[in-house]
Design a protein around this nucleic acid. Structure first.
Ligand SMILES: [Mn+2]
Ligand SMILES: [Mn+2]
Ligand SMILES: [Zn+2]
Ligand SMILES: [Zn+2]
Lengths: 139, 139
DNA sequence: TGCTAAATTGGACTAAGTCCAAAGAAGCTC
DNA sequence: GAGCTTCTTTGGACTTAGTCCAATTTAGCA
């Protein structure tokens, strides 16, 4: 039940490999919502050599295990972030920035349960608009 | 103020071209949430010859004009649908099916306004889970 | 240490989408 | 309708995102 990166990977039932440890550490260090290629570059920067296909594999595995999360923001490459608290995203349609939006702002649910023909296990919300920086006219 | 496809395109301030008219008609006829390549095949099937790059252009333009809508469902190619009433989507994580979820089920807002650093102009919700057909064990 | 299942490798491959300069068409105005 | 301007289409090359696979390496266990 370790809380270290190694421990979290093992707890998730995954083998501890160089790539998995380094991917989480790199994603953590980079912060934010990152593409596979950004993470791959981050790994290279840290002197960790892993094949591109492996970075795809590793992030897919970590996502399945719930250690990282796909921060979907519409078109473009898939973006990952380290799993933390439950939140949604605000995407600026001008500069493309992605910022976190806490899910239950005032202690309640941010969204009503929907009536669907099946069972919902996860709800993802994307707020789109113009970020304050772009509103301020920042080029 | 015509309600025909031609009229709607013109009303939107766009030039009426063969490709634009045919794209809307094809998307309408196909129904559901379609990729550019599905629409391109639909066009070919109707005997309308348009370059693939044009199908991308046309759908982008129609989306900007609000005549079609991007039905985002996570990874994979962008999917379009003809603009109708406001709704969200339920995506089956097993079979990949996408079904509509009415936005304001009981007359209210389905989602609370979020506190973001900027101005939200659009909110998109993706419900993920298992559709009833997959729950029933359909292969 | 040795074994076995799981993971990585790298290179080829596919899919999704962009870009561009040249050619064509839509919507004016007269 | 002719002429003009601007927008749109074209098709082929190109880029980006991601998958696939057979050979090799490694993690975890006994
Ligand atoms: Mn986030
Ligand atoms: Mn829909
Ligand atoms: Zn912005
Ligand atoms: Zn299903």
């Amino acid at each position: 039940m370790s809380d270290s990166v190694t421990g979290r990977i093992r707890n998730a039932g995954l083998r501890v490999t160089r790539g998995r440890v380094a991917a989480i550490e790199t994603l953590q260090a980079l912060g934010g919502h990152r593409t596979v290629d950004e993470i791959a570059r981050g790994l290279t920067g840290r002197g960790v050599k892993v094949a591109r296909a492996t970075v795809f594999n590793v992030l897919g595995d970590l996502a399945t295990a719930g250690l990282v999360v796909i921060a979907d923001a519409g078109p473009g490459p898939t973006r990952y972030e380290v799993a933390t608290y439950d939140h949604h995203h605000f995407v600026c349609t001008i500069c493309g920035s992605i910022t976190d939006v806490p899910c239950a702002e005032n202690g309640g649910q941010c969204i009503e349960p929907a009536v669907v023909d099946g069972t919902v296990s996860n709800v993802q919300v994307i707020y789109r608009g113009v970020c304050s920086s772009c509103e301020a006219g920042d080029t």
